[in-house]
Design a protein around this nucleic acid. Sequence first.
DNA 1: CGTGTTATCTTATCAGTGATAAGATTGATA
DNA 2: TATCAATCTTATCACTGATAAGATAACACG
Lengths: 192, 192
Amino acid sequence: MCAKKTEVKPYHHGNLKEELIDKGLEYIDKYGVESLSMRKLAEASGVSSAAPYAHFKNKDAFLDAVQDHITESLTETLKKTYEKSGEREVLIELGKSYVIFFYENPLYYQFLFARRSIDIDTFPPFQFYSEVAAVALKNMHNKRLTKETIRKKTITMWATVHGLARFALMDGVIDTDNLDKEIGQLLCSIEV
Amino acid sequence: MCAKKTEVKPYHHGNLKEELIDKGLEYIDKYGVESLSMRKLAEASGVSSAAPYAHFKNKDAFLDAVQDHITESLTETLKKTYEKSGEREVLIELGKSYVIFFYENPLYYQFLFARRSIDIDTFPPFQFYSEVAAVALKNMHNKRLTKETIRKKTITMWATVHGLARFALMDGVIDTDNLDKEIGQLLCSIEV
DNA sequence: CGTGTTATCTTATCAGTGATAAGATTGATA
DNA sequence: TATCAATCTTATCACTGATAAGATAACACG
């Protein structure tokens, strides 16, 4: 289990830091963050209970690292969706992509947003969404839009998408067999 | 501190159950739920660490009770807002009321929605909002709306309001001095 | 090659937590 | 007054986050 890889990381365990994060992601995906403990992850990685603290100042710092991984993964998903989408429906496609991301990993949503409040302006998924929305909104409206108007519309759309992911999916409100179509319809009922 | 009241509740402490809930609300409002412990509340109430378990099966059950209190308080706030609102802007007023409720108690939001996923259809604030929205939407649209359409529009509006409370308020996105006006504008950018 | 430095990891150990069992206390009831 | 059940206390448990002190091994440099 250890001797196979002759990789970059050279120390005792090899790459404890990354393995802990991987195990953390896996655990949260399966059981949620509530019952996650550093000791369980340490044991699962075959090290002592104090070992993780060589890599993370405390549990909170560790969870920050896990959070960053998920955020990055979400951002990548959105970017891929963007590249596949036509200009006309790109905002709806991004919204669907966002909702579906959390539909496929419901416990990620809880974990991501139950922690310390996220600063929206430095939250990469929103930053990306904002850029796309700014272009799309200008194209949709003939008249010029002020920066402030664009920002407000963007926040509203994002809030809707975010709220949908929260309420609509996690509680069986939406017909999950037609997820794709359903979400499109829901988002279409907003006129931007 | 104990001998003053000659109230209804007759047992040892008097009314430990309610005091614990009150102390819990107070604690969450001040510090958030993360560092809340049953032992602290017990000590703050002047009883032993095991006493709370005579009233609550476990910590989770206790937090459920606290959650119910907050939910009830939110529902009441919405109902009061409804009664003061004209028919035309009632949906926007309810939205503002929702956002402002959590603006005034930011940690309640985290607590309320970071726990086990809420079943939207039995969540009293949404139930009330749904009833109002159904009437309002029918009045706004000349043409008849199907039940399904109403439900979708309602969910979308609710999702927006909920998302606004999350993103817009907690991260200083909105000008908090003009909170009332700002939220109205934001919600107006949705066409229902 | 060897010596020191440093990151990594282990072994205790601590305080705080949720929770339970066993027994004490007290209000209510008959 | 005697009984009963709700309430509360006193131990006690396992688990957790965290730290200190020491062991180990990779690495840098002479």
